[in-house]
Design a binder for these strands. Structure first.
Lengths: 330, 330
DNA sequence: CTGAAAGCGCTAACAG
DNA sequence: CTGTTAGCGCTTTCAG
């Protein structure tokens, strides 16, 4: 079912069918009606491929992330998809799963979309720069800026520092940090802010205890930590899953939280509420939604690169619960 | 940067470039090398659009779901994407968000992919049938079969019945069911199995208390329920979010769980473990992964529809924790 | 307002 | 093995 058959049936040229299908005002209402009727009868839908090739537009956006485990990426993707859909664009997803050969897949994706966002440490800067140079518009999300690419992130340093100060106010002095700063720019920022907070108070900054982003990794790392001769008083974790792993390990070790051990996480996942975990909330959907809007601007702007580079850091919110230490008063 | 410029630079025809780029064995190793070198220098990547139009293949799959709230859909999508990527296919996502006009978007998606999965109650059977008739291969996921479309689901009836029996064994006799059977085929199945379990024991089957799939809805519905003169002894919820909402409401009302009120959920989300919630676990990734494999089979099979209709129901697992009632022994 | 015709970038017969 | 030449399905000048 192609435009030709509709044209024949309606007794017009394919150009007219094309116009009628897109409500161009270069056709009489009457002609349009006749064409649409024919299209209806033949159950014709213009081929996206044909149209895209001719227009040089995919009407699609891409997004690259490590995976969808935990609510963080899922929420970002959701915010992105929602706005993209409103703007009439489909969304292509690509999970790198930490694969080595992710670059090739990302490059392939760049070839299928009019714009794309690249999250965190999914691929190297070389790939980003290559796409920035010859590919579609890009937005970097939760990742350090590269050359002149638009970048959107949430604040990590400041909240982490605030968190450190809060813990210090509880009287804690021996700390541990769980998470791998080399794993993602977010973790690096959180560790940096945490370290800055301790340093300002003259408290020794521990080296990070590197572990993956999941409950089991946190649990395992913690069980080692808790066996040390001098146990930390407070464990700051790179995210909630890790923190909940520590929570589990501590409980198993017969420790009571927060009296024997204070714990904090990041993200405020649903389980954090039920575990009474102090954490930091960040505007995940807004992150994705903003990226989608920025991309749309770049894609539709008349002269590429007219808009200056955009950089934004969204604020986060410290959410204090009982896991960080006893709170007196209300 | 097109195939023509590479051809000129390498001193060959575009056909040869095409062959060299795809490692056809219809080119000398030497020619291939020369072409690839030229391509490299010019930073040429074959256009996906051009290729797709010529091949009549998108090398992409689609997936339609209501949203990504909660781990369920995210996990299914992840399993789907992972397998699709391994099979060399990109993935297009479409979240319907319960919109009325989802049909048009789904139809549009069908025009961009070689195969797609449609989950739950995102669009009506008419849309499914229309795509089945003229569109790419389809797999229905967590949804009742439609005509001869492949369908994969997890078991709901049986597990729900098992769950009812377990609760009956605890001595509970006054039940409530939270969730809307009209909302999704899954909920319908769960309610049906639950009802069957009670009926078999001669226990009155309550009408479902309809509520949305989230914590607040569960909490609100429960607070009404708990104010009735005869409070139920056990509340069976359509999923964990709802159950955790009930949990919250009950705790707020000063009830102790499970002594004053037993609660069960579905999905085994992370918070369920921390809340001690009895629930039912289902193989979410496997659901998506299987759908991706089935689609690939259909897409690549020589004569369309040679494979008979596939229907599969994956088993689930009752996960008993403390929220359903006191367990003696180990 | 409508039609003819030239692409968009690539693949795949079909000849050599 | 390599080149020529049709398309794939649609949009868009350019004439009329």
């Amino acid at each position: 079912m192609t435009i030709y058959e509709v044209a024949r049936r309606a007794g017009v040229s394919i150009a007219t069918v094309s116009r009628a299908m897109r409500d161009s005002d270069l056709v009489t209402a009457e002609t349009r009606a006749r064409v649409r009727a024919a299209a209806q009868e033949l159950d014709f839908t213009p081929s996206r491929l044909g149209r895209s090739l001719a227009e040089g537009q995919h009407a699609a956006n891409g997004i690259v992330f490590p995976d969808l485990v935990g609510p963080y990426y899922a929420e970002v993707v959701l915010g992105y998809e929602e706005v993209a859909a409103e703007l009439g664009r489909s969304v292509l997803i690509l999970a790198t799963h930490g694969r080595r050969d992710a670059a090739a897949q990302v490059l392939d994706l760049a070839n299928r979309v009019d714009g794309m966002v690249i999250m965190g440490r999914t691929v190297g800067d070389d790939v980003v720069e290559r796409i920035a140079a010859t590919g579609p518009p890009l937005v970097l999300l939760a990742r350090d800026p590269v050359s002149t690419v638009d970048t959107i992130r949430t604040d990590n340093e400041r909240s982490a520092r605030e968190l450190a100060e809060h813990l210090l106010a509880h009287g804690h002095r021996r700390f541990a940090f769980l998470g791998d700063p080399d794993d993602s720019p977010d973790v690096a920022g959180r560790y940096a802010g945490f370290a800055a907070g301790l340093r300002a108070a003259g408290v020794p900054v521990p080296a990070p205890v590197r572990c993956a982003f999941n409950l089991d990794a946190g649990r395992e790392a913690a069980s080692g930590l808790l066996r040390r001769r001098t146990r930390p008083q407070a464990v700051v974790c790179a995210n909630d899953e890790v923190a909940l792993g520590v929570h589990t390990a501590a409980t198993e070790a017969g420790l009571s939280i927060p009296d024997d051990l204070a714990i904090t996480g990041w993200d405020d996942v649903m389980a954090a509420g039920f575990a009474g975990l102090t954490t930091v909330r960040q505007p995940m959907r807004e992150l994705g939604a903003t990226a989608a809007r920025w991309l749309h601007d770049r894609i539709t702007e008349p002269s590429r690169d007219r808009t200056p580079v955009r950089r934004q850091v969204l604020p986060t919110q410290l959410t204090v619960r009982r896991s960080c230490g006893p709170h007196t008063g209300r």
